Amino acid sequence: MKHLSQLWPGMLVLASVGFGQTALAHPDIEEFSDTAFAEQPVTVDCTLEDGTASRCYEIKVNYMPKDLDIGPFCPATLNDAGGIWDWTGENAKLYRIDGSFLEMLDELGYRFFDDDGTVHTVDNATERPTVDHACINVSADESVEITMLLPVTPVMAETPSQLGTVTKVGVALDGVPIFSDAPSIQQTGHMPALDTCGGHIDPGGWYHWHATSTDIETVFEKEGVAADCTLDQNSSALFGYAFDGHAMYGSTESDGAEVTGLDACNGHVGSTPSGEVYHYHATDEFPNLPACLVGVQAAENFSTTATAGVGATRAGEGGRNEPPRPGDGTSGQLPPGVEEAAETLGVTVEDLMRALGDPQAGQPDMSAAAKSLGIDEADLRSALPPPPNR
């Protein structure tokens, strides 16, 4: 039985419990809401990403739960208030999308409104932006169904898997998929606005979370954001399950106590209603999700019937657009030399930009980026242009 510190030397793991079967909780289908599923989950044979044969829960959900109240997203004018956005440039923090925020972006060179104060808003699933900077508000496709796989018995990975931009994280108890941080304005030129619970609609037409929505007001309080989520807030509640099978809780323990001893993925072995097991916790900073996943996910664990967007299996058939991508002529300018580097490395520009992360967030983790791309770190460093002088 290995201790966490043996599995991942250097990680900030303080748990004293080893990773045997007694420390790993199984996802509990009974914890999901009555309206979460399009049909009752079943247990199926599956293969984990490390090649291990396993058993998984196959979960099918609709484009959005029937009783979920979403929005607002983009404000109509500078006099209105929309959703929220985590700005990563100068004056970085979480903001309510309102006139003062958009005017600040304007001063930084990102103009999202006309002279009369009308906000540039576009449904990029059905039309392309005609301006340099637009607020994205995607229309829903009620026909979409999503299929996800959760390992019945979690398996610890040799090393954690890092979560980049729009990486699959898990599924909430309401059946809504959970993804890591949305693309930055600096990468695409546009702002795919989140509502005040931290979610929005994918270009494929289905709703998903970019936050632990049942504890997002803890973040609002810390960041000084004047917003309210329509969902009940409970910092100690189970929010959902990550795609490695581990539970995701709010920012406090199940008894309301302060969380201690978290590892680099925001998880630890601690007390839950399922016993002393490994689980993740939300943070008080946005996005308040795990920073990485410690377990092995099922291969091909996410697909949709959508015609665009993440997991699309019928791409190009339904008239919906893929979102604007870096370098496709509908987004912001790529950093110099990135297209040439992608060609040299034999990867797409999109995958390279996703691996490197937000250019405004500081120097990328080159080791993690190389691993996510499946290439040698030395090759990545040699292909990339040198950073600009600052």
Rank of each mutant, 00 (worst) to 15 (best):
residue 239 F to E: 13
residue 366 M to R: 03
residue 81 A to W: 00
residue 151 P to S: 12
residue 264 A to Q: 12
residue 239 F to V: 05
residue 295 G to H: 07
residue 334 L to Y: 09
residue 54 S to A: 06
residue 330 T to H: 13
residue 156 M to P: 13
residue 68 L to V: 12
residue 204 G to Y: 05
residue 95 Y to D: 00
residue 80 D to V: 01
residue 168 K to R: 15
residue 159 T to D: 08
residue 249 Y to A: 02
residue 89 G to E: 02
residue 353 M to Y: 12
residue 188 T to I: 12
residue 258 E to K: 10
residue 344 T to S: 11
residue 324 P to V: 15
residue 337 G to P: 09
residue 346 G to D: 12
residue 305 T to K: 08
residue 218 T to Q: 08
residue 195 D to A: 12
residue 174 D to K: 06
residue 344 T to H: 03
residue 50 D to T: 13
residue 149 L to G: 00
residue 388 P to V: 15
residue 225 V to E: 00
residue 291 A to H: 14
residue 381 R to L: 05
residue 82 G to D: 00
residue 142 E to P: 08
residue 158 E to M: 10
residue 145 E to V: 14
residue 39 E to F: 09
residue 171 V to N: 06
residue 137 N to G: 01
residue 268 H to R: 11
residue 111 R to F: 01
residue 109 G to E: 10
residue 101 F to M: 05
residue 33 S to I: 01
residue 283 T to F: 03
residue 50 D to C: 04
residue 20 G to Q: 03
residue 113 F to V: 00
residue 151 P to A: 10
residue 72 P to R: 00
residue 294 V to L: 07
residue 337 G to R: 11
residue 17 V to E: 08
residue 83 G to V: 10
residue 344 T to R: 11
residue 269 V to E: 01
residue 223 E to H: 06
residue 332 G to E: 04
residue 255 D to L: 09
residue 20 G to Y: 05
residue 150 L to N: 01
residue 3 H to M: 09
residue 237 A to V: 09
residue 163 L to Q: 07
residue 81 A to V: 10
residue 239 F to W: 13
residue 285 E to K: 13
residue 168 K to I: 05
residue 88 T to N: 09
residue 287 P to N: 15
residue 15 A to V: 07
residue 367 S to A: 14
residue 279 H to E: 02
residue 114 D to M: 08
residue 234 N to S: 09
residue 124 N to F: 15
residue 172 A to T: 09
residue 328 D to G: 08
residue 364 P to V: 12
